[in-house]
Amino acid sequence: MNIFRFAGDMTHLASVLVLLLKIHTIKSCAGVSLKTQELYAIVFATRYLDIFTDFISLYNTFMKLVFLGSSFSIVWYMRSHKIVRRSYDKDQDTFRHYFLIVPCLLLAMIINEKFTFREVLWTFSLFLEAVAILPQLVLLQRTRNIDNLTGQYIFLLGAYRAFYIFNWIYRYFTEPHYVHWIPWIAGLLQTLLYGDFFYYYFHSWKNNKKLQLPA
């Protein structure tokens, strides 16, 4: 464990807690893309298949349970909670996320470190995570404005993977033959995808005005 990875995990934890608290307290999911939340639930489900077979540490297992529990709770809230589901904007949240799942699965069948069931799904979860934010960013472009909590959620989500990149650099220089191109490239792509959002988020924060995304 190093400071970059710990910061990344805490930032990631903060992002899901911000979203869960928002939905739980104000009983609204306005501006939140259910598609992105469903993609994240799939990411965690396919990433953490080893949760019951490979015990790494209490921290590792605890965090996996938190990420699985929070992502599935958010999906449940947005689909089934009688009050929250009313604020879900399904007419605007129309990104066909199956167009992301199938290519990521095919790519994971081709590009992986070893062709086993768990390794392919683990690789799939990396590719899917890299693009999972797309429905949310498309929804924001459509609805134009963004409330603070959703903005913070996306910012934290982008920041966590940026911290992980520093973690990978650190581990590359401190651990012999720690080389993993697949997560590195997927993680870099993912962070770049947040790039323009960060740009507008930073400028809105600097000018202390409401975050407006260009049409």
Partner: peptide
Amino acid sequence: ERNESIKDEL
């Protein structure tokens, strides 16, 4: 072994 080292990450 080599490619398991990253599996300790979330």
